[in-house]
Design a binder for these strands. Structure first.
Lengths: 107, 107
DNA sequence: TTAATTCATAACCCCCTGGTTATAACAATC
DNA sequence: GATTGTTATAACCAGGGGGTTATGAATTAA
């Protein structure tokens, strides 16, 4: 069976290195070179991670000349919300924390 | 470096088989035997998945005689909320959907 | 007490994944 | 045009992870 959107999303976020890249891209758009500097791994490794993040819909690329700019895609996390909605009953205990999150986002 | 709580949680949820087990346990408490029937994999494989889910704090076990009952732990998903809070800015676009979720949980 | 059931662990295997280096394509600069 | 810089891909490799069967410990049933 082909992997679901949940699979690709969870798997993409499952790797710490990949999640670190995503978190950097959440703050600002960066080129592959900029991402490689400070990532502690080679440039091809970074490119592979970016391809996976892109495949999961977490990241968008913007080629410009010889460099490619990457940025996080807000819509990429939507399946996470969908999955949580499937398990609302589990959330009762965490409700107040989620409420806090919403309040902070609202202001 | 030792893996963070995020790592263990995301990795635990990253495997489809494991997520399926977790989803079944979200609905009702089940024994290893009950989980194995209908999982499509061997009993030792199920036990290993359960150990990983337990290690991630997603599941609680309750030994009773020769069988062990497992159930989902609501608090296990808390780190997911924490992680989302770290990236609130990314959420602007998904805000209304999260709002929907909260409304449905409130009723 | 003997047999059957349930579960966890050990030992093993294969494949997938995350890393590497090498290289090619393309763009910018000299 | 030649060179340098940026990125993606190919080829490869080591390790980890998810599966298996075998087995033992503990509990229940016969």
């Amino acid at each position: 069976m082909e992997p679901s959107a949940f699979d690709t999303l969870f798997r993409a976020l499952g790797d710490p290195t990949r999640r670190a890249l995503f978190e950097r891209l959440a703050r600002s758009e960066l080129t592959v070179r900029a991402l490689t500097d400070g990532a502690g791994i080679s440039q091809p490794a970074v490119s592979k991670h970016l391809a996976i993040l892109k495949g999961a819909g977490l990241v968008l690329d913007r080629p410009q000349g010889r460099e490619t700019h990457y940025r996080a895609d807000p819509k990429g996390l939507a399946p996470l919300l969908d999955w949580m909605r499937l398990h609302e009953t589990l959330w009762a205990g965490s409700f107040d924390r989620l409420d806090d999150l919403l309040k902070r986002m609202d202001q």
